[in-house]
Structure formats: structure tokens, C-alpha cells
Design a protein around this nucleic acid. Structure first.
Lengths: 335, 335
DNA sequence: GAATGAATTGGAACCAGTTCCAATGGGCAA
DNA sequence: TTGCCCATTGGAACTGGTTCCAATTCATTC
């Protein structure tokens, strides 16, 4: 069995209070005593019990992360950023994976009532009003990553600007007939980034004096095969678009496949730009919009640790910029 | 602040022991009392404090996972399997990400000495003798996933069989000049699956009466670009191979790129088979060997929970089979 | 009606820490 | 020499649970 603070105290011939003081770096210990205690700790290979420590401190020294963990590669990349910060801090990381809505309810309830964490990072999920209320009551500090809200600090990505950038890139190349292939705007699992991308698309069109046409706007379930169908319809229009902006790389890939099957050359006959810059995008040489995923994790985690250290802190919002990654699927239109 | 067991006891007009008994489903409580207590719990929205519970139980109710978390997509898929099992159990998941060797040492030391977990899952890492000794002393139950050892239970993948399957697939198609592009066998971060794949390759050749030639065996750092170079060398031999077995999909992709740049058609002039079946493989229509990644996580986690429930348990080894996924990059050789 | 025993219950002791309070002892000033 | 103050220290009380032990209640048996 592991040794306890009493063993150390006995071994060093001092009281438990003194050992505790040494461990926690209190100045109220003489150098001589400190040496004795450190010697005993070394000799017994002692380290304080995690859970006893947390109980008596009244702190959990744990950060919870709630995320639809594995559903998208982007979430993993954000987690990586979070982990990087946590592992240099005294906190432990507790990951709660929410792949189903049912789990979601149980999870937040459980976390709040059993005091499992000091702080919570919510990744790519929008909290309901009820959840926010519970978290506030429990005084668990919360930071949202990749979602906006008025209730807590957050790190978001400027998807409106991202949508604008993508569209402007196409406009600069000379395109006028630009379609937008989008996911549904259903925010039930809670994220409105798709809608923002669409807004950016509209803004860019407007600035360039290009009228928005519903013919060039197609919504469908987020999948490669559905995007394939959407693209087929768009490309069979009497006046087909010369460029398509997809609200994700996954969809962009479906669009490219559709173009190939219609014997259209990408980017010769059709330019395609995606969004996300997933790993696949590089292999496929896909022009896309990159989000600072890793950085969003780092910044969000820093924000949380900061608010745990300084009790009083206002709500803060960090908006990270996106970047156009020009590769081989966009080019000036023919003629 | 959250209410405590004392609040509930007072509210229900009973002793704390009785409340504890109700919570833990002890039969030593009358129905009448149980009702009273449950009513009080409901009313106060009480749930026992996680850390106090763990301290007095002498159990952490936590499973630790040590993994080079994000380095490869395969690790994420395994974690997903682990999470699936954990979330249906009373245990929490504590992830320790080891991307650097330095962190590794600190991490295991820390886990052992501060009694952070009841059980540990080690993913895609081989433990050193010293680490094993520490874990044994600490009585922390350990299960290894994707690695073999004599010290603890494990879920491994039969990489020898996988290497054999891949090679046999090529032989069955009629290939005789089959090269193997491999990672280095350096097991410092600790995993000998590459070596096993190579052994399987040799076995299959032998069974088919094809002599092994070092000309057709190339080792290099695990990367797409290095594999590109390796393939270039192989394909410029006087008698170039008609098929290449790559020890990972990532490498296979580099090989395909090399073939394209040499104006060789895949699979017309060169067959390529990978290993892993990463997401990319499907998009690229790559023939490959699939490992039951998700299942390895599930089984490993079950093994661990099982050994936590039944104190005495022998070391168990589960070997999971691999599967050839035939897609479009392999075909019978010309002539 | 007393003795036996089972069912139920309250509460002290314990888990392994932290922190507060009171006590000790030495040094220095009056 | 006495008194005071400060640095240092030991240990009790506390964190919020679980569990064991002893006590109470009540029905059953002789």
C-alpha cells in the first residue's frame, strides 16, 4: 500500500500539519525541519492521495470536457489543444463524450450534482437555457469552444468571415455564378456555424453586386453522398454554376465526384471550395477554408484556467480568424 | 452549495448511516424509512460527493487511459470503443496523452504514486520492465491494447496474420515480385506491429515458394513522402516489383503517388495494398487490411472492468483477426 | 411474563488530506 | 530577571462519505 501523510510524519518525527505545510510550500517551516520531512518523503516514496486532497481542499482539480468527441476530426484537433494546456497545469482532464442526445442530459446533470469538476469546457455544442441555469447555480466555471452564447466566456470562429472569404476568393477569380451547398441549419445538437457560413456567402455576393438566387442555394443532410446529389441537380440547371462553395470539405468531396461523373473538369469547368481543411483536403488538393482548430482548444482552456485562478472575471469572447487555403480545385472560369 | 448527506439525514429525520444505506441499495432499511429518505433526496436534489465517496470507499472509480492520443487516427478509433464501455459503467475516464517520451515517465510515476486510478488501459505502447514493476507493486490493474507483453492482460491484433493475408492476396492475384515497404522496427515508443507485418509477409512468400529478396524490402521513417522515395527506388530496379505491400495506408498513398509520377498505372502496372483501413483509404479506393480498432477498445475495456470486479483473475490474451478489404488498387499482373 | 433473536437504526470511527488554534521555546528589551 | 513577541510546531477539527458496532424495538417461543 501507498504510504500516507501519517507515515511520513512519524518517520520524520514531526506532526502531520508540518508535513502538509512542507508539501504545500508554506513558509512557516524551519529549514531544518523541512529537510527532515523531505528526506522522509523521499525515503517512503510518498505522494499525497489525490482524492483525500481534493476532498479537504474542496476543489476537484479536474477540468471536464464535454464534446461530441469523435464525430468529426475537427473536434479531435481541438481536444489536442486542450490537452496541451491541461497537461502543463495541476488539473486532470475528464472527457465526457456525447454522441447521443440521451447521454447529454444525464451527463450534465451528473456532473453538476456530484461536483465532479471545477471547470467545464463545452466543445461544438450549444447549451440549452436549462443547462446554463444549472451550471450557473453550481458555480462551475464554463467556457464554450466553437459556439457562441451570452452566458459564458467563449472561443468562437468567425464563420461569417469564413463564408465571406470563401465566396470572395471565387469572385476574385472571376466567378459570378456561385452556388452554395449547405448542411441543414438545424441547431438541435446546437451549433449555428453552417448558418454563419451562409450569411458570409450572402454578404460577399452583395458586396460584389451579384444577386443571390435560391436556385444556387441547396441544403441537405451533411454527407458526401447527399452533397453528390445536390451537386448533380445544380450542375444540370440550364445555367449551371461555374463555382460551388461547400459548407464542409466532406461535402466538397461529394461535389467533386459528381462533377467527375458528369465529365466536368475540376477546376477547368467547375471550381470547388470547401471548409474545414480536414486531413483529406490536402491529399485531394482541395481549396478550402482553414479554421484554427488547435488554437481554439488552447485559447479556450487558457480562458478557463484563468477564470478559475481569478475568482472575479467578466465574460470574455475570443473570435479567431479563418484563412483561405488555395489549392488546386479553384481557377478562373472559362471564357 | 450542494447539499450533503447530513442535510438529507436531518431533513428525513434519520441518521447518516441510514441515508448511506438507502443510496447504496442496502436491504437493511425498512420500506417506510426508505421512502422518507428518497423523498428528502429528491427534495434537496442531492447526489453524493464524488471525491468523498471515493476516499471512503478506497476506490477511485476511475479508469485511466494512457495513449499517444492523437498521433494516429487508429488510436482515436480505439478510444471510441473504450469510451463506449466506460460510459455504461460507474467509472470515469481519465485520459493521459503521451506525445513525448518525457511526459511518459512523469505520467506513470504520478498515476501510481497519487493513486489516481483503479485500472489502466495502455494503448499502442509497450511498457518497460520498470514501468511494469511499478504498476504491479501499486496493484493497479492493467490491460494493454494493441501491444503484447507477458505481464498483463491484453488485446492484440494478429499482425503476423495480417501481413500474411495482404501478401497472400497479392499472390492469389498472380503476383510473384512483391515488395514490402515498411516503417523502421524501432520499438522505443514501443510497438512491434511493423515487425509482425513483415514476418507475415515472409511467411506467405515462403508458403508460396517465392524466395525472399532484400531488394524488395525497404525500410524508412513512417511518412508519406519517405514512402514516395522508397517506392521510386523500388520501381527503378532492373526487375521492378509488380506489387507493393505497404505497412500502413499512409505509406501506401505515398507509393501510389510515386507510381503516378513514373507514369505507371495503379493497379494496371502496379498493385498496392495498404494496412489500417484509415478513413482516407475508402476515398482513395485503396485495397488494405482492416483491423478491428473499435472492437479492440471495447474488448480491452471489458477485460479491465472484469478484472476489477473479480479480484482473482488470470492474465488473459485476446487476439483479434484482421480482414482484407479489396478495393481498386490491386489486380492481376499483366502478361 | 421473561428470554431469545431478528430487523432496523443511530452514530462513532475511519478514509487521507488541510487548516486553524493553542502551546512551546528562544531572543530581545525593559 | 521578568515579560513580551514571534517563529515554529503539534494536533484537533473539518471535508463528506461508508461501515461496523452497539442499542432499540418488536415478535416469537417457552
Amino acid at each position: 500500500m501507498a504510504s500516507t501523510i501519517k507515515d511520513v510524519a512519524r518517520h520524520a518525527g514531526v506532526g502531520v500539519g508540518t508535513v502538509s505545510r512542507v508539501i504545500n510550500g508554506s513558509p512557516l517551516v524551519s529549514d531544518e525541519t523541512r529537510e527532515k520531512v523531505l528526506g522522509a518523503i523521499e525515503e517512503l516514496d510518498y505522494a499525497p492521495n489525490t482524492f483525500a486532497r481534493r476532498l479537504s481542499l474542496g476543489k476537484t482539480l479536474t477540468i471536464g470536457v464535454i464534446a461530441p468527441f469523435f464525430t468529426r476530426p475537427s473536434v479531435v484537433e481541438r481536444l489536442r489543444g486542450i490537452d496541451e494546456v491541461i497537461s502543463e497545469s495541476p488539473y486532470d482532464l475528464n472527457i465526457f463524450n456525447l454522441e447521443t442526445l440521451d447521454r447529454r442530459k444525464r451527463c450534465i446533470d451528473d456532473i453538476v450534482r456530484t461536483s465532479k469538476v471545477d471547470g467545464l469546457l463545452i466543445v461544438s455544442l450549444i447549451l440549452t437555457a436549462d443547462e446554463v441555469r444549472r451550471l450557473e447555480e453550481s458555480r462551475i466555471k464554463t467556457v464554450q469552444i466553437d459556439a457562441t452564447s451570452d452566458y459564458c466566456s467563449q472561443v468562437a470562429i468567425d464563420d461569417i468571415a469564413g463564408g465571406r472569404q470563401a465566396t470572395e476568393h471565387l469572385i476574385e477569380l472571376g466567378h459570378r455564378k456561385i452556388a452554395f451547398v449547405s448542411d441543414f441549419f438545424d441547431a438541435s445538437l446546437g451549433n449555428n456555424s453552417m448558418e454563419h457560413r451562409f450569411l458570409g456567402y450572402q454578404q460577399a455576393l452583395k458586396s460584389a453586386g451579384i444577386p443571390f438566387s435560391t436556385d444556387y442555394f441547396s441544403q441537405g443532410k451533411h454527407s458526401r453522398t447527399v452533397a453528390y446529389q445536390q451537386a448533380q441537380s445544380l450542375l444540370r440547371l440550364v445555367k449551371p454554376p461555374t463555382a460551388i462553395f461547400a459548407s464542409s470539405d466532406t461535402q466538397a468531396i461529394g461535389i467533386i465526384e459528381a462533377a467527375q461523373d458528369l465529365d466536368l473538369d475540376v477546376p477547368g469547368d467547375l471550381s470547388v471550395i470547401g471548409y474545414d481543411d480536414i486531413e483529406l483536403a490536402e491529399y485531394l488538393n482541395l481549396t478550402t477554408i482553414r479554421q484554427p482548430l488547435h488554437e481554439s482548444g488552447v485559447r479556450g482552456c487558457e480562458l478557463l484556467l484563468d477564470s478559475l485562478a481569478n475568482e472575479r472575471g467578466a465574460i470574455r469572447k475570443i473570435i479567431l480568424p479563418t484563412e483561405v487555403i488555395v489549392r488546386g480545385t479553384t481557377r478562373a472560369p472559362k471564357g
